[in-house]
Design a protein around this nucleic acid. Structure first.
Lengths: 122, 122
DNA sequence: CCGTATCCATCCGGATACTG
DNA sequence: CAGTATCCGGATGGATACGG
């Protein structure tokens, strides 16, 4: 947990960035079109979906298949590598699901003790 | 992977942010002083270590113990909750360690195919 | 030793508009 | 349908200086 650590962090950055995990989760085990992924992820903008998918493709985590049809169609899917990432990320995602409540409670307790810059009067 | 997803992402944000995982990893199973943690994480600034530790404390993941000695001394340790997070994060960290090489190769291949704005001449 | 305060460059990502 | 281009505000985080 020292030398190679920065490289690990670099990978964890991807996991932590705003949309990567959602995209990987949506792709899961099935191929999806651009618009399908977009619809499956509520808040995401067209731009950010493109950016995120490009980054994942660059890292060899998803494949991009373009069909020269009209209208155009582009399919995305996890690579074998992407699937192993999804599997490895599951424990953490489950942890998050299981403990969101505890974290919320801890935050509330913390914030109640330290009323951060609360009232009026300069 | 849809409704509660935003809450999960909120938690994953912490994991993905620049220093949290490193700090959690350094604390591991043992109590550490502020300066010890700082020394164990090469690039981190005093400010960011403080900010990161505060956030982790707020979320109930680490405890902060102040000793009224001279010079002052502050100990940090993972809570039980923090330990479960560390355990759940292990698979992902291992995945990162194991596949950094593959990712690098994928990137190189990708970049070679698409020489992004490479040469001179405006 | 362990912070907090301030300043400031950088990046991230949303909104919008336009193409093949 | 599936992008790309541009603009732009806000958050992020490093450097520095100071305080208990």
């Amino acid at each position: 947990m020292e030398t190679e650590d920065c490289r690990v962090r670099e990978v964890l950055d991807k996991v932590g960035d705003k949309w990567s995990v959602s995209v990987i989760g949506v792709l899961g085990r099935e191929t999806r079109r651009f618009s399908e992924v977009k619809r499956a992820i509520p808040g995401i903008s067209q731009r950010m979906l493109t950016v995120t998918l490009r980054a994942l493709e660059r890292d060899g985590l998803v494949t991009r298949t373009v069909y020269a049809t009209v209208p155009p169609r582009v399919d995305y899917a996890l690579t074998a590598l992407g699937l192993t990432l999804l599997d490895s990320a599951w424990p953490l995602m489950n942890w998050a699901l299981d403990h969101v409540g505890e974290i919320d409670k801890a935050r509330d307790a913390y914030d109640r003790q330290r009323p951060e810059v609360p009232p009026q009067q300069p």
